[in-house]
Each structure stands twice: as C-alpha cells, then as structure tokens.
C-alpha cells in the first residue's frame, strides 16, 4: 500500500500532517510534502490522516 494525494483536490490544509507527521509535512511555503511509503505500524495514523483531510484528497493504493 502506498499513499497517493490528489494534488488538484489538496488545498494544503495540513490536517494530514497533524494526524501522521511521519509521512505528511507542510513546507515553509505551506505546500504539502509527503512520502508515499509507510511502515505498517503507522497504519492507524495514516488512516486517520485519510479521514482527517476535509477535501478527501488522500487515498491508499496497492
């Protein structure tokens, strides 16, 4: 499984970075940077990030 963010939908709200700071981060310009791959032990944080995004921009794909 990997993380895919729909860049058109994403509005850099950074809610994901609160749920799962291991994989999501806003850079100094406020733009979302993220890592696609994640450790299975962080799955609940990642799922929390998927839910927390008010634009529903994050998906987990295999």
């Amino acid at each position: 499984m990997k993380i895919v963010v729909d860049r058109v939908k994403c509005q850099n709200h950074g809610q994901c970075a609160i749920s799962a700071p291991t994989n999501f981060e806003l850079d100094a310009d406020g733009k979302l940077q993220y890592q696609e791959a994640f450790d299975e032990e962080n799955i609940s944080d990642i799922e929390d990030a998927v839910d927390a995004c008010p634009l529903q921009a994050i998906q987990l794909k295999s």
Binding site: A17, E25, D27, G30
Partner: peptide, 14 residues
C-alpha cells in the same frame, strides 16, 4: 499564516 513558517512549532504544540 500565509505559508507554513511555524507549522512544525504548531504540530509540536499540538
């Protein structure tokens, strides 16, 4: 913020 200068400080606060 207009950008995210203090975002890591914010996340730390949280």
């Amino acid at each position: 913020d207009k950008g995210a200068r203090f975002n890591s400080a914010y996340i730390k606060l949280l």
